[in-house]
Design a protein around this nucleic acid. Structure first.
Lengths: 215, 215, 215, 215
DNA sequence: GATGAATGAGGCTTCATTCAT
DNA sequence: GATGAATGAAGCCTCATTCAT
């Protein structure tokens, strides 16, 4: 599952060094991409922000696009790693609520990164895109599991299609907080947003459940 | 309200000609932006796709970014114009459902355009961005009105904050259909998607309403 | 026969202008290549020597290698055009001598160009090389005809293989005068060189002829 | 005579090691230069082909051009060493024929090396070029001796100028076999080529000799 | 002596924009 | 109004060379 890494060519051999340098590179790039977007950022700026020369930059990547891939991949990884803290298996409404709340907090904390990822990922080549989309599938899969366990334990009753769609809705509503901040964050605090969205989500679930109980 | 047009400088005087040429330009550009994105599309390609020379292109715009603005603006206008078909004022659940359904259909038909708009609008300069964001505000405003009328007529009971959030949710779920098509359109037909989302939305509303009725 | 031109992409449409600009380009490039070789010459230098900007240069070619191809092709053409002055059909020893002498004079006059051609042609891509080699085939073909006519008219008697080889020898001895000038031109004047080489060549022919007459 | 070596700076002291490493370097480089030419070959590739690191490469040379010099020098040496097998002093037509034949065989066996040498030597700096040209002088000198001895012994009669030119012709006809292989080796086997060229050469000589005998 | 990571000058090419016709 | 040739700043990337380990 975690095997999905697209290799990025290096001429440096020391694995640890690669990890370190790429970390520096990614950190710098996120800041730049946030400010000016991928296309308006030059490789020279990336190198400078990373703290090394243009030559060194190219020891660790092959093309500028590799940087974008590395950045997106890294952000996905960070988000995913944090989401792995969620206890997906408990199968209670409480754990579902907690999971959603935790996810929204993560998005809030990583707002800049998430924004970059969603605005720039589409610039990835046909070659690299599948790798990051795969990560999205995995993440929405987590929400599906989270909900499905509630179904499994009889806490809620819901068809697979609804579970799938709900997971997507949760996922997108998280992102929404990040990329529509200019609109949402004027109206709501994070906690308000979480409270309201969770409420709507769960009422939707409960309503659905009641209806189907009638049949 | 409709006054929100940012003027784009021209050296041509004939208003009708301007309209015609810009139409050709926008049509061609949408295709190109869809395929390669704004940054990877050259002004030469735009001119060619529009059917005139690079020199002529620059008679109708001042910078490449003007094209992007014109494209985004035009798409927003088309979407908005179509949404204006919706009867916002009726204030029945049925009209709310119809409105949502109609919106989702519009998005589905204009998928490519919507995609372009959302992927490229962020490349607009600080100068032009407000003009298109304003359009978004207006559109979500329409959904707010649509819901609010139901509240006004007593069909549903809901605080302003919820109305605001619901409007945003509807708006984003529409877009979702377009920009997450690679995931959603594998699992659902448009009608299924509309049915399920509407159901969840309205159950959320009803659940909410019931709860607050208890207070 | 003369159809063997590899097209070089242009974004300029005016055929005459292309011809003119490419002429300027080639003239400047020959000077540069002569001095520093193709690889050590920069595109900026080429543009400057041609008398226009780097941008303009790239309106008339697609890659730096195109310049090399154009240069080689042009030189071959010039040499060939001059060789076409030779009366190939007469079939007398005198005309053979005249032809050789004329060829050596052409080489002498175009020494720099010929040098460039022979030193740099090998840098042409697999794509372009055949086009210039074809020209060589055509040129040696001319010498073959020149000799063959003498055979046809009974002036000399010689098998095809010898005719072929002789043509090659003449061709290479011409080039020799250009690319071994550091050695030859210290020992001989052009006229001396022509006289001696022609003498050796014809004696070889006569000797050959006599021998075979004995059989 | 053999003193003509241009020193190439080293930071390594051990003479034997230098010899060994340079051997590895030259062997690898010939392959690379043959395939891609000197300019398109990188120092990294050279180091890799030689079997050591880029750092080590630079312990044995000072600049990339040193490699080219070393390669050319080495090839010339090999060719010359083999030519030294020829008995120059015998002064018979038979020995002349044998010498020519032997030389052509050497060229044939070392085709790749010879090609590299002739195509890349021109990239040597003004500094290094004389050293390799000197080698050429020495080699043509060998052919001069070979012929001159025949003159000395009265086997043939010929002025110095002719001897000089003949030597050059032989030398160039050898090279011709290598660098015009695309044309010659389609028409002739090596033995045919040797036979025909020798024949033409000797008939030229005999013809010349007869003529002058008449005077 | 050997290694290979780091450097940055400099090369090739693109492309938004202008302007003479 | 339309055209398209001209411009050159600026971008991406390579690679010979150095130097700390």
């Amino acid at each position: 599952m975690e095997r999905t890494k697209r290799p990025v060519q290096t001429s440096v051999k020391d694995k640890q060094l690669i990890e370190k340098r790429r970390g520096e590179m990614i950190r710098g790039s996120v800041q730049l991409f946030k400010q000016k977007g991928f296309h308006r950022t030059t490789t020279r700026e990336i190198a400078k922000a990373a703290g090394f020369s243009i030559g060194t930059l190219y020891e660790y990547i092959r093309t500028k696009e590799d940087v974008l891939y590395l950045v997106c991949d890294s952000i996905y990884d960070q988000v995913k790693k944090r989401l792995e803290q969620i206890d997906l298996e408990q199968g209670t409404l409480e754990s579902l609520k907690l999971g959603i709340s935790y996810y929204f907090h993560v998005i809030d904390e990583m707002q800049d990164e998430v924004l970059v990822m969603y605005q720039e990922a589409k610039s990835l080549s046909k070659d690299a895109l599948p790798y990051v989309l795969q990560k999205e599938v995995e993440m929405t899969g987590m929400f599906e599991t989270l909900i499905q366990r509630c179904v499994d334990r009889g806490v809620i009753e819901m068809s697979e299609a609804y579970v799938h769609l709900l997971a997507q809705n949760i996922f997108v509503q998280g992102q929404m907080w990040g990329f529509r901040r200019w609109m949402l964050q004027k109206s709501f605090t994070l906690e308000e947003y979480i409270f309201l969205q969770t409420d709507l989500l769960l009422e939707g679930i409960k309503g659905y459940q009641k209806n189907s109980a009638l049949n």
